[in-house]
Simulated assay, not measured.
Amino acid sequence: MAQFTLYSHPVGPNGWKVAQVLCELGLEYETIMKDFGDVENGMKTPEFEAINPNGRIPVLIDHSAGDLIIWESGAIILYLVKKYDPEHKLYPASLEEQALVDTWFFFQMTTYGPYTGQAVWFKVLTGNENPKASERYVGEVHRMCKVITKQLEKPDSKGWLVLGKCTIADLSFLQWTRFLYRLEIDIAKEYPTMNSWVEAMLAFPGVKKSTEGEVWMGKD
């Protein structure tokens, strides 16, 4: 039995974020994919809501800690690096450096991810029925891409958001940034610095392992 059980979804970026951190830290886990909606294998069933009352993925169960259940991707990732990253590969030791990482990490959690999700909802999933909302959210995604590009291009960044190395802050953006094709944003052409950043993360052994069998990037 693997140490962890991860409840995820083939499309949802947040589950993949957790998988990438697990793999980069060399932790063994089993993935159980859930469906959206109130169906037999869905996230709105009584069985799943007994695990996560919010009825969303991801959820992580740490079997080595008395079957500890954690939900919300940010909480899961912080738990993993605080407990299972003694070499500080993805999360620094000092409080001051942690604050720098957390700033970008929470920017992804509270702004970049939600705004990108809303942009996909209004522009793609609802057939652009509300063009003003679509325009607003897609515009915000472009604005944030410029913010990220500026940070990555700072002389001391070495191509990363903070501390001159890859941290959970960078990894938290990876799947959401790969998702931008659904908004007809070609980062290779429009944001080449971000594209190089994405390609660098995709080359990491743990990230490669986590995306084995990945199906959602099929550009539906």
Rank of each mutant, 00 (worst) to 15 (best):
A2K: 03
A2N: 07
Q3L: 01
F4Y: 09
L6S: 10
Y7Q: 03
Y7I: 02
S8R: 02
P10A: 09
P10H: 08
V11Q: 11
P13D: 02
N14I: 00
V18E: 04
Q20E: 05
C23P: 01
C23S: 13
G26Y: 12
D35Y: 11
F36Y: 14
N41F: 09
G42W: 05
K44P: 04
T45C: 11
E47T: 15
E49L: 15
E49R: 14
A50R: 12
A50T: 14
I51H: 08
I57R: 07
P58L: 04
L60H: 02
L60P: 05
I61K: 10
D62E: 09
D67H: 10
D67L: 05
L68M: 15
I69T: 14
W71Q: 07
E72Q: 12
G74P: 10
A75V: 13
I76P: 02
L78K: 03
Y79Q: 09
L80N: 08
K82C: 15
K83A: 14
D85H: 06
P86E: 09
E87K: 15
H88F: 13
K89W: 07
Y91T: 01
P92Q: 02
P92C: 10
L95I: 07
L95N: 07
E96R: 11
E97A: 10
D102F: 06
T103Q: 12
T103S: 09
F105E: 00
F107W: 03
T111L: 15
G113H: 06
P114Q: 10
P114W: 03
V124D: 00
G127A: 04
E129C: 01
K132W: 13
K132Y: 14
A133R: 08
E135D: 13
E135Q: 14
E140M: 07
H142Q: 04
C145K: 06
C145G: 11
V147N: 03
T149F: 04
T149I: 06
Q151H: 14
Q151V: 10
L152H: 10
P155S: 15
D156T: 08
S157F: 13
S157V: 11
K158D: 15
K158E: 13
L163V: 01
G164Y: 13
K165S: 04
C166A: 11
C166Q: 11
T167C: 02
D170H: 04
L171P: 01
S172R: 00
S172Y: 00
F173L: 14
Q175H: 07
Y181N: 09
Y181T: 10
R182V: 01
L183I: 06
L183R: 07
I185N: 02
D186F: 08
I187E: 02
I187T: 15
Y191L: 01
Y191T: 01
P192S: 06
M194D: 00
S196P: 01
S196I: 06
V198C: 11
V198M: 10
E199V: 07
A200I: 05
L202A: 09
F204S: 06
V215P: 03
W216E: 05
W216P: 05
G218T: 13
G218I: 05
D220R: 13
